[in-house]
């Protein structure tokens, strides 16, 4: 047994807790877009990770452009790049919904297969455009470094930034879903499509906008991830299983469930990673989720019966 002094233990506790919170915001960011696309609309979009990668590549492009043409704007470009990432991913989402998804709403398993095909195409498109090597944008200085309240506690600023962004985005999604007319239409369509159509909601348009919005949020998530890691053509596929598990574990059609499940999974994983080595922490958490889902298939917060 290694001997730690009480203050060292306290610092480890704080930093480990922060690592868990940081992972929580990453998982929640990934899952927010999918909570709309899969949780609300029931579309299994396996290309969701590629929309995140698109957002990350947009930030990389912006950073390169700014560095080459307007280095003076370097401290400010990042916020604009996030907005562009949202628009780019949302536009691609709109295109995909129009050309592919709308034919497959009645065949959920086929949506899953077709979007997997789409993810292969997008991955290769990234590889052909940006190369197979992982890229990192040059981040503005204010995102670098860390914050040191005491001698032994070390909190990275980019982690704090991702958390803040997660908070803002979650709030925005909540406002949209529960406090806006478009969100009301969306929830109505999810609950009863035929009746929503009968009272004059254009359900086809709702589907298209919802899908596009989910993809846009994925783009923002990808943009945020550039602050904590590099981006490669297959980065997206690394996140996809975790993302789906977060949404399924939380219970579909429940924003609160998604938040709770991202929190639980993140804390579980960072604790397991502290005690078990390497990938086994993740294996333990995934196994735990699968076992819990076998016992409680409707997820943590169920609001409707699964077909």
């Amino acid at each position: 047994m290694l001997a730690y002094s009480a203050s060292e233990l306290w610092s480890i506790f704080i930093m480990q807790g922060f690592a868990g919170l940081s992972l929580f915001s990453v998982l929640l960011l990934m899952a927010l877009g999918l909570a709309i696309i899969f949780g609300q609309m029931g579309v299994v979009n396996l290309a969701h990770g590629e929309f995140m990668a698109l957002g990350a590549y947009v930030v990389y492009l912006c950073s390169t452009l700014v560095q080459n043409h307007a280095p003076a704007l370097q401290p400010y470009y990042f916020l604009v790049a996030i907005a562009i990432a949202f628009v780019a991913a949302a536009l691609l989402g709109l295109l995909v919904e129009w050309s592919l998804i709308r034919y497959l709403y009645r065949r959920p398993l086929d949506t899953l297969l077709a979007t997997w095909g789409l993810s292969l195409v997008l991955q290769q498109a990234f590889r052909s455009t940006f190369g197979a090597r992982e890229v990192t944008p040059t981040l503005p200085d204010w995102l670098m470094g860390s914050f040191k309240p005491t001698e032994s506690i070390d909190i990275p600023i980019n982690g704090v930034f991702v958390m803040a962004l997660t908070l803002v985005l979650t709030g925005a999604v909540w406002l949209f879903l529960y406090r806006s007319r478009a969100g009301l239409h969306m929830r109505a369509t999810v609950q009863n499509r035929a009746m929503s159509g009968a009272i004059g909601i254009n359900t086809g348009l709702v589907d298209r906008l919802a899908f596009s919005l989910g993809c846009g949020i994925a783009g923002v998530a990808g943009a945020a991830f550039t602050t904590i890691g590099s981006t490669g053509p297959d980065s997206g596929s690394r996140y996809i299983v975790d993302t789906f598990l977060v949404v399924v574990f939380g219970g579909t059609a429940s924003l609160l469930g998604t938040i709770a499940s991202a929190f639980g999974i993140a804390q579980g994983q960072s604790v397991c990673e502290f005690f078990l080595q390497g990938t086994m922490g993740k294996v333990a958490v995934l196994l735990g989720i699968v076992v819990i889902l076998m016992i409680r298939p409707q997820g943590l917060f169920a609001s409707k019966v699964r077909s």
């Binding site: 029931g42 299994v44 959920p108 398993l109 899953l112 299983v241 789906f244 598990l245 399924v248 294996v283 995934l286 196994l287 989720i289 699968v290 889902l293 076998m294 016992i295 298939p297 699964r306 077909s307």
Partner: peptide
């Protein structure tokens, strides 16, 4: 037995492959 089917079965089996 717990009536997990469709896409949920697909996602959980995919998680098994990852595990």
């Amino acid at each position: 037995k717990r009536r997990v089917g469709g896409v949920y079965f697909a996602i959980i089996t995919q998680a098994l492959a990852l595990i």
